[in-house]
Amino acid sequence: MNGFAKGILSFLDGIRMKLKDARYAFLFEPGDYTPDLKGNIKNDIDKLLLEWVGGEKPITILDLSGIPSDLMVSISGTLLKIVYDALFWGQELVVGGREQPLLVVLEEAHNYLKAGEKSISSRTVQSIAKEGRKYGIGLGLVTQRPSELDETVLSQCGTIIALRMNNSKDRSHIRSAMQDELQTMIDLLPSLRTGEAIICGEGVKIPSRIQFYKLNNSGKSSDPIASEKWMNKRNTDLDKYRKLLLCWRNQKLNGGKENE
C-alpha cells in the first residue's frame, strides 16, 4: 500500500472516530437544523437568535465546555460571528443591537483569543472590540492569563478589573493597556487579598481598590479543601465508578451531589 492510500485510510479512520464520538453529535446530527434531501430545514438560525438574544431572562449562557478542543476556536468564532453580524445588519430593527444592546462576556478568553492568531474568533472579537459599541454590542473578557490575549483586543477594553496577579508578564500586559498615569496601580496587584481588585476606566469615576462580596454558595469556582477531603473514607463501590465512566463517555456532568 502506497503512502497516498495510507493517507486516505487514515483520514477515513479519523472521520469514522469523530462520527462515533458523542462530543461531535451536535455537528453531525443537529436535529431540526438538518436539511432534507431538498435542502429544506425545519428550523433556521432565527430560532437560535431568539434563544440566544431574545430570551425572557436577561442572561443567556452558552456552555462550550463539552466542545472538542480542536473545534473550540472555530465553533466559538462562528457563534460570535452569527450574533455580531445579525445585530449589526438588524441594527435599525427593534431586536437589533441599537434597540436591544447586548454584552458578550467571554469566559476563559485566553482559550480562543491567543495573541498572534488569525482565527475566526480572534477576527470577530477584534471587530466587536473596535466597532461593536456603536452598534449596541459590548464585550467583556474574563481570563486568568492576560499575557496570552491579543494586545489589540485588550487595548480596546474601556474598563479593566484586575484581581491579584503575581506573574510579572501578566502585569506587564495589563500595564500596557492602561493609561500612563494609572500604570503605577499595577504594582499593587501582587499585594491584593482574595476578593480584592483594582478597577479603572470608563466604568468608574476614579480608579479604585474594591472588595467583592463573597457569595454564600461559591459553586464550582471554589477549590475543594483537599486536607479535609483526604480525611474521608475512600469510596469502594464499583457502581459509583461505573457512573463515573458513563459521565466521562457521555460528556455529561452528574447533576446532583451524593452523600454516600
Rank of each mutant, 00 (worst) to 15 (best):
residue 16 R to G: 07
residue 16 R to M: 11
residue 10 S to K: 14
residue 48 L to P: 00
residue 10 S to P: 06
residue 31 G to N: 10
residue 63 D to T: 01
residue 16 R to A: 11
residue 33 Y to I: 04
residue 60 T to A: 01
residue 31 G to K: 09
residue 65 S to D: 10
residue 44 D to E: 12
residue 18 K to A: 10
residue 29 E to T: 14
residue 18 K to G: 05
residue 53 V to L: 11
residue 49 L to S: 04
residue 2 N to M: 06
residue 22 A to M: 15
residue 68 P to Y: 04
residue 32 D to Q: 08
residue 23 R to H: 08
residue 21 D to R: 02
residue 33 Y to G: 04
residue 46 D to M: 06
residue 54 G to Y: 05
residue 11 F to R: 09
residue 46 D to P: 01
residue 49 L to H: 01
residue 48 L to M: 12
residue 2 N to Y: 06
residue 34 T to W: 11
residue 51 E to Q: 04
residue 62 L to K: 06
residue 15 I to Y: 08
residue 55 G to W: 00
residue 20 K to P: 11
residue 8 I to A: 13
residue 24 Y to E: 03
residue 12 L to T: 04
residue 31 G to A: 13
residue 37 L to R: 15
residue 25 A to Q: 09
residue 27 L to D: 05
residue 66 G to L: 03
residue 28 F to A: 07
residue 15 I to M: 11
residue 5 A to P: 05
residue 66 G to V: 02
residue 47 K to Y: 11
residue 62 L to M: 07
residue 61 I to H: 06
residue 23 R to V: 02
residue 3 G to R: 07
residue 39 G to I: 00
residue 40 N to T: 10
residue 22 A to I: 15
residue 46 D to E: 15
residue 8 I to N: 10
residue 53 V to W: 00
residue 3 G to F: 12
residue 13 D to F: 05
residue 26 F to W: 07
residue 19 L to N: 14
residue 33 Y to C: 00
residue 55 G to F: 02
residue 38 K to M: 14
residue 35 P to C: 11
residue 7 G to Y: 05
residue 15 I to L: 10
residue 21 D to I: 02
residue 64 L to C: 12
residue 67 I to K: 00
residue 57 K to G: 03
residue 13 D to K: 15
residue 43 N to Q: 13
residue 20 K to H: 13
residue 66 G to F: 04
residue 28 F to G: 03
residue 5 A to H: 14
residue 45 I to R: 08
residue 9 L to K: 06
residue 69 S to R: 14
residue 13 D to A: 06
residue 69 S to T: 12
residue 29 E to D: 15
residue 6 K to M: 13
residue 28 F to P: 02
residue 19 L to P: 07
residue 8 I to D: 08
residue 61 I to D: 10
residue 6 K to T: 01
residue 17 M to T: 15
residue 19 L to I: 13
residue 42 K to G: 04
residue 42 K to C: 02
residue 36 D to Y: 03
residue 67 I to W: 00
residue 23 R to S: 03
residue 44 D to S: 10
residue 63 D to M: 03
residue 67 I to C: 03
residue 14 G to F: 02
residue 21 D to A: 04
residue 65 S to T: 07
residue 12 L to V: 14
residue 26 F to I: 06
residue 3 G to N: 15
residue 19 L to T: 14
residue 62 L to T: 08
residue 29 E to C: 11
residue 52 W to C: 03
residue 9 L to T: 03
residue 13 D to V: 06
residue 15 I to N: 08
residue 27 L to P: 00
residue 27 L to Y: 11
residue 43 N to V: 11
residue 51 E to V: 01
residue 6 K to A: 11
residue 35 P to R: 05
residue 40 N to Y: 12
residue 68 P to Q: 09
residue 47 K to R: 13
residue 44 D to R: 09
residue 44 D to M: 08
residue 65 S to G: 10
residue 50 L to S: 09
residue 46 D to L: 08
residue 67 I to F: 00
residue 54 G to S: 10
residue 29 E to S: 09
residue 66 G to P: 02
residue 24 Y to Q: 03
residue 55 G to N: 02
residue 39 G to N: 04
residue 26 F to T: 05
residue 13 D to E: 13
